[in-house]
Design a protein around this nucleic acid. Structure first.
Length: 736
DNA sequence: CTGCCAGAGCTTTTT
DNA sequence: GCTCTGGCAG
């Protein structure tokens, strides 16, 4: 089959496809045919005689990689393209680590821990160190787990991370450091790796064993990295380590869009993509700016969002798809009515678009709750993305725990899991049994077996699995004989659904011959819960929506403190990332883009709806590119003549004594009038010397200090933004 | 020691 | 709303 590159690709794409020697950086704007470009490039390489197994394609998700390889097959017709090496960084790292396990001194591939396992180990460490007894404020294991992961991903010390992200925990600094050290120790004892270890271990493997790097890099002639803007520091170093040492112009192609970098919170560093040309001075820079996805009115809006970016490769997307539909912004009375309006809007859209082609996007998982209720009421099928993953479901993890123990006796979290399915055994007994099993203390184990009937069964199964080498499918069958009755006991309400999930697990397992790869794949690229069951609307976090597109996209909760998230208001960098996130959300839309901002949101604190402000991202959009509507109390929505109307202070806002003019931009000097705060200042901190002085903030501009809170924060009233709690590092005090 | 209850506190995003 | 923790009874 002959591929007509010239006809199928625009000039920029063609250049990206045919430049195969030396480093290339492709800045691929949203919807600019990035996948197409990668696919054609793979095809081109193979046509030129490059062996598929010499090509490495690192993608963000397994799904993306499969999708691309499938499309290559389609373009090339039948081919050996399945042999292209691909996957996520973590998946690829695991496969190399497995291959070279002996070099690093692993008997067999250590088990991979997911987040819950890691937290289990942190819990264990906490007990051992006897930390935080009787202290309600002491951080939870989930907190420390994420701080520690952040510290490793950003390659900052824990102290630095605490300083930046969790200053209120700084008082516990020493304990927390000890806690993390203990975590590392237990992890080692149990022969476990967390996600972060995979990357750092691979780096060690490649940098400390030159012959391994030699062998690996020699086996890869072309490397392509998708979503390069989301790589973190180790990942960038790893890419480099996969090339021949001393090659100034390796065949690397990095593809990405700095405007869509949305994973800084887990260590992604936009500098990687911005500095790629510095890292590889011979790199060719190719920009894909022609957009094939969205209509021009939508692009007018997204370009307007793009204008507010700083520190980015300049770009302007254009399209030749016109449309009479402008993007819309709808201000709703409350979050409840927002949900109702969303459902109503979807019903209307469903006349034109298939349900599969409609998506509702939001900043955080919990925000879709009301919408879910309304959709259910209206009988509209939906499927939520970014929710619990298949392999995260409790029943799946229980079964996998047995398999993990069969591979690694020391896997403590796995023991905990399966032992806790036995009635009468709690964390303490489970731990004792684990220790007894490790030293094979027969007397203790026998005593326990007599006490708990189910324990007998569990231990027998584990022995069977350990002594006989079984295929994953067979092994699961053995486990289910014990586990299915337990399942019915523990989940009387929904065991049928869970049984179906286990059935699916068996199906997946049947396609594997060897246990290690089965377990590795499942914990690294857990399959999306397959439900090809017909048409459904997509509900998704913006993060999970990355790389996807729909005809109609609705974005909800575009209000301050939700989108942008309240956690991102302290730091200009975080704030910029929220804006990129908003950009990602809007660029998912092909034909219709509808933005929702409730004017009030139910608050638990006061048990009543509280007024909220429209998101600054909405205010940044010029009136000319969006049609603004406002829900009317009598029902229905009315068109507003201009965006200014929306910013007029509503009665509730006046009650809250917000400062009046809303159109304040940080640059404008707005003299702040003193005003009583919404909350009363923290007792005891009222008389600090800073009170009453003015200060500047990168995002909110000039504001008046109301009080000093905690050791390092100020409560500051910003005209136009209201009262904010800001870490002292982020404000500049003016001399009184 | 487990399992249950009540009350406190809190809510980002993911490999 | 939901999860986690501490307290308490069996």
């Amino acid at each position: 089959m002959h591929i007509t590159y010239q006809a199928d690709l625009n000039p920029a794409q063609l250049e990206a496809v045919t430049t195969v020697d030396g480093p290339v950086l492709v800045i691929a704007g949203a919807g600019s045919g990035k996948t197409r470009t990668i696919v054609y490039r793979l095809a081109h390489l193979v046509e030129r005689g490059v062996r598929p197994e010499e090509i490495l394609l690192l993608t963000f998700t397994r799904k993306a990689s499969n999708q691309m390889l499938e499309r290559v097959q389609h373009v090339l017709g039948h081919s050996r393209l399945g042999a292209v090496r691909g996957g996520t960084f973590h998946g690829f790292a695991y496969s190399l680590l497995k291959q070279y396990a002996t070099v690093l001194g692993f008997e067999r591939g250590a088990s991979i821990m997911d987040r819950a396992d890691a937290e289990e180990i942190f819990g264990q460490a906490k007990d051992r160190l006897d930390l935080g007894r009787k202290d309600r404020k002491f951080p939870k294991r989930s907190t420390i787990a994420s701080l520690w992961s952040k510290s490793r991903n950003k390659e900052l010390s824990l102290a630095q991370v605490l300083h930046q992200d969790a200053y209120h925990l700084k008082v516990y600094e020493d304990d927390l450091i000890r806690w993390c050290e203990e975590y590392g120790r237990i992890k080692q004892e149990c022969g476990l790796m967390d996600y972060d270890d995979l990357l750092f271990l691979l780096e060690r493997l490649l940098s400390e064993h030159p012959y391994v790097r030699e062998a690996v890099s020699a086996s890869l002639s072309h490397i392509m990295v998708d979503e390069y803007q989301d790589t973190n520091l180790v990942q960038a170093r790893l890419v480099h380590l996969l090339t021949q040492p001393d090659d100034p112009a390796p065949n690397i192609m990095a593809v990405g869009d700095d405007a869509q970098s949305i994973y800084a919170f887990r260590g992604a560093n936009v500098r990687n993509i911005l500095d790629f040309p510095k890292m590889y001075p011979q790199a060719r820079l190719i920009k894909l700016e022609r957009n094939y996805r969205s209509t021009q009115p939508i692009l007018h809006l997204t370009n307007a969002v793009l204008k507010n970016f700083t520190d980015t490769f300049a770009k302007e997307l254009y399209s030749d798809r016109d449309s009479e539909h402008n993007p819309e912004h709808i201000a709703t009375i409350s979050d409840r009515t927002q949900a109702r309006l969303v459902a109503e809007t979807i019903r209307e859209l469903a006349d034109t678009y298939a349900l599969n082609e409609i998506a509702v996007l939001f900043r955080a998982g919990y925000q879709s709750y009301h919408v879910e209720v309304e959709l259910t009421k209206s009988g509209l099928a939906f499927r939520k993305y970014g929710g619990i993953k298949f392999a995260d479901a409790a029943h799946i993890k229980d079964v996998l725990a047995c398999l993990r123990i069969s591979q690694n006796m020391a896997d403590f979290p796995a023991w905990q899991r399966i032992l806790r399915t036995v009635p009468g055994i709690g964390p303490k007994t489970a731990q004792k049994i684990f220790q007894a099993a490790m030293i094979n203390d027969q007397t203790f184990l026998l005593a326990q077996r007599r006490k708990h009937a189910n324990l007998n069964e569990v231990l027998d199964i584990l022995d069977t699995l350990r002594t006989q080498t079984m295929r994953p499918g067979t092994a699961i069958g053995v486990i289910l004989e014990y586990y299915l009755p337990v399942l019915r006991e523990t989940y009387p309400d929904d065991y049928p659904r869970r049984e179906a999930g286990l059935e699916e697990l068996v199906q997946i397992a049947l396609s594997y011959d060897d246990m290690t790869s089965f377990l590795g794949d499942l914990s690294l690229d857990s399959p999306e819960a397959e439900e090809a069951s017909g048409q459904a609307i997509t509900l998704s976090t913006v993060h999970s929506a990355k790389g996807l597109e729909w005809d109609a996209v609705l974005v909800i909760d575009l209000v301050e403190e939700r989108f942008p998230s309240r956690h991102a208001l302290n730091d200009a960098g975080d704030f910029a990332e929220e804006r990129r996130l908003f950009y990602v959300a809007c660029t998912r839309a092909r034909e219709r883009l509808i933005l929702f901002s409730p004017e009030s949101i139910y608050s638990r604190e006061c048990g009543c709806p509280m007024p909220v402000r429209v998101s600054p991202f909405i205010e940044e959009i010029p009136d000319s590119v969006v049609a603004a509507f406002r829900e009317q109390i009598g029902g229905g929505v009315g068109r507003r003549s201009s965006m200014q109307a929306m910013s007029a202070p509503s009665p509730q806002r006046e009650l809250r004594e917000y400062e009046a003019p809303q159109e304040v931009r940080p640059q404008e000097q707005m003299p702040a009038r003193s005003s009583r705060a919404v909350d009363t200042p923290t007792p005891g901190s009222g008389q600090t010397p800073v009170q009453g002085t003015y200060c500047r903030h990168k995002i909110f501009g000039r504001g008046k200090v109301v009080s000093r809170v905690e050791p390092n924060k100020y409560k500051i009233n910003f005209p136009g933004f209201g009262l904010k709690l800001i870490i002292e590092d982020f404000v500049e005090l003016e001399q009184p």
